[in-house]
């Protein structure tokens, strides 16, 4: 066991997988000598050489296409898209190509690609750096969208993603990179894909969240506990496809739910969670499903982002509203 930050846990996972599978490749903009703009790939080129860990020209679509071609030649690519806001440049590689190849070829070809990308607000980045775009990605058949909320999951989910034979979009929360530390095992371990986790058990209401919002939800749960309110917190971990069983089981137990996302409200993950509960768990409910999200505007970068991002008190207020409905 060692104390690791969220980003160190990610580096750890990359190092272990580069070491154990010679077909893995880490590449992207500035990931080589510089170790990535956040140092997620720090030291990896020195350890594994330029053949395995390398810089690419500055072109996201090229990085996506490169991954597909390398996968066809038998490699297990782990490309980095420097910021999630840059994926629009490579959406064809993701949505139009790699996620379709297994289907397109009748299962005769596969794309074991894990795209890593940082996202999430709260660090005052320039525009198109912190946007939560997981809702776009979640509609793509054949693509898993995975995001950890803590260092343990960051390492275990990333290792599971890399070892998976289908493409995974692995979202790393910018704000959590260095703000979270935890004791995690030094050796390789996996955290299952397609499985949500009940990170706090409760009986009165379910807060269903992911990434940084899990930590905000846990704080709300702790606060409400002092008033004798028992809050269950579900960490989705895999955003697409959803772990329906865990969500429905939790709602069956508590009878009340709030779905939480950092992204703007329209057509997002929280909407998927709410519609799942409406479709398959309506009879468990004592109140409508609540939703917490940012407003439906473009992400206001820089100084205004704190007003835009869903805050802990918004989660608390919505939780109380649904509890008292």
């Amino acid at each position: 066991m060692s104390k690791k930050t969220y980003i160190q846990a990610i580096t750890d996972a990359l190092r272990l997988e580069l070491g154990s599978d010679e077909k893995t490749l880490v590449f992207g903009e500035d990931v080589g000598k510089n170790g990535g703009v956040f140092r997620a790939t720090d030291g990896l080129q020195a350890e594994f050489g330029e053949d395995r860990v390398f810089d690419t020209p500055l072109a996201e679509s090229g990085i996506g296409g490169l991954s597909i071609g390398l996968a066809l030649e038998g490699f297990r690519p782990i490309p980095e898209i420097q910021f999630l806001g840059f994926i629009f440049e490579t959406l064809d590689s993701i949505a139009g190509q790699m996620s379709r190849e297994r289907f397109r070829t009748g299962g005769t070809r596969h794309m074991p690609i894990t795209i890593r990308s940082p996202y999430g607000g709260g660090t005052h980045t320039p525009e198109m750096h912190a946007d939560s775009l997981e809702g776009y990605l979640a509609q793509i058949p054949g693509l898993r969208v995975v995001t950890p909320s803590n260092p343990y999951d960051a390492k275990g989910l990333l290792i599971s993603s890399i070892r998976n034979n289908d493409p995974v979009f692995f979202l790393e929360n910018l704000k959590l990179y260095r703000s979270m530390k935890a004791d995690i095992p030094d050796e390789a371990y996996t955290v299952p894909l397609d499985k949500a986790a009940v990170v706090r058990e409760g009986t009165d209401i379910s807060l269903i969240a992911y990434s940084a919002q899990v930590n905000q939800s846990l704080k709300v749960a702790e606060k409400l506990e002092k008033e004798g309110i028992s809050v269950e917190v579900v960490d989705l971990r895999t955003l697409s496809p959803l772990d329906e069983e865990t969500i429905l089981k939790s709602v069956q137990k508590t009878g009340r739910a709030v779905a939480i996302q950092e992204a703007q409200r329209q057509a997002g993950i929280a909407a998927n969670v709410a519609s799942l509960i409406a479709e398959k768990g309506a009879l468990y409910l004592s109140a409508p499903v609540g939703r917490v999200s940012a407003p439906d505007t473009v992400y206001p970068f820089g100084l205004a982002e704190d007003d835009w991002l869903p805050a802990e008190d918004e989660i608390e207020a919505k939780t109380r509203e649904i509890l008292n409905y």
Partner: peptide, 13 residues
């Protein structure tokens, strides 16, 4: 772009 990836894979292999 995919051909570039295949070509790089050939080189790496």
């Amino acid at each position: 772009v995919q051909a570039a990836g295949v070509a790089l894979g050939i080189k790496k292999n």
